[in-house]
């Protein structure tokens, strides 16, 4: 479970060597859209040398690889061979794309988690199967590409994105995978807060960030609220006191799923340093 997934271009030393300072829960080193075609080799070498020399401890790191051409994808896979990374982000994920990726030689990435970027209309007609793919760890919504491929103009009305958001979250939840929302492209705080509100409304677990300054707001708003933590703590305390999985609290029936959800929320709050004695959200 993570709140913030921050894209870092793979060809900028200053950002790579400070990736652990930005407070993102997960880092995505981008070899794809952030890198011009003539700089792909520079980014690959830089990313590899960085991770070999200075990989930050305790920070999940994904790499977004190239997928448009076989040669680029293969070069990326060769480069990341043996690197200590958590997983990869697969652009334009579809069943066919997954098949292409998992069978590509060298098959040195069998232990890596795959986060599928859902950014083509086709993907929505097989979303459940993508989500259930054993290698898939989470689904990410790629709003910009999806707009391009579907002619959606979300600048007119965000409503066009309601269905894709819901479908993606449902597919992920049905397969017990992570659902991660599209980034806000504006660097304006008000626009970001509005975007995060949608992220929460539609039930996503996390959100993509395209600039380090977006991370603190995402972390704060996607963490459990004070009220939610308070409520969960009361449920767990009552449960421990009564030693029962089924009891009433303030006239409301509490049973196993509610207790589990409360515990999950407290675990999450603790992970983000929000419980008494934890750090203030940094």
């Amino acid at each position: 479970m993570a709140r913030s997934y921050l894209f870092i271009p793979g060809n900028v030393p200053r950002m790579l060597q400070n990736m652990d300072v930005y407070d993102a829960d997960v880092i995505i080193i981008d070899l794809e859209d952030a890198i011009a075609i003539e700089e792909k080799d520079e980014a690959r070498f830089l990313t590899c040398e960085f991770l070999r020399a200075h990989r930050p401890e305790n920070l999940p790191i994904l790499i977004r690889i190239n997928s448009d051409e076989d040669s680029l994808m293969r070069a990326d896979l060769m480069a990341i061979k043996g690197l200590d990374i958590t997983g990869i982000v697969l652009p334009k994920t579809s069943l066919a794309q997954l098949e292409r990726f998992t069978s590509m030689k060298p098959t040195n990435t069998t232990d890596l988690e795959i986060y599928g970027l859902i950014e083509t209309p086709e993907a929505f007609f097989e979303l459940d199967k993508i989500a259930k793919h054993p290698r898939i760890k989470g689904l990410m919504l790629g709003g910009e590409d999806l707009s391009t491929h579907t002619n959606i103009d979300k600048s007119l009305d965000e409503i066009a994105f309601h269905m894709p958001k819901s479908l993606l979250n449902f597919a992920a939840k049905a397969a017990q995978k992570e659902a991660i929302d599209t980034p806000v492209s504006s660097l304006d705080d008000a626009a970001l807060i509005q975007g995060i509100k949608q992220t929460k409304t539609f039930g996503f677990d996390g959100k993509l960030a395209i600039h380090p300054n977006q991370v603190p707001l995402i972390n704060t708003h996607l963490a459990p609220s004070k009220t939610a933590i308070h409520e969960a703590r009361r449920i767990i305390i009552a449960h421990e006191k009564k030693g029962s999985m089924r009891f009433s609290l303030d006239g409301k029936m509490i049973d196993k799923p509610i207790i589990q959800r409360a515990q999950k929320l407290l675990d999450k709050a603790h992970r983000y340093g929000l419980l008494a004695g934890d750090a203030h959200a940094l």
Partner: peptide, 17 residues
């Protein structure tokens, strides 16, 4: 003010090219 890893990466890229 590049760190060693950057110097190595830039040089290796240049050599490959």
């Amino acid at each position: 003010g590049a760190l060693d890893y950057t110097i190595k990466a830039r040089l290796k890229t240049a050599i490959e090219r």
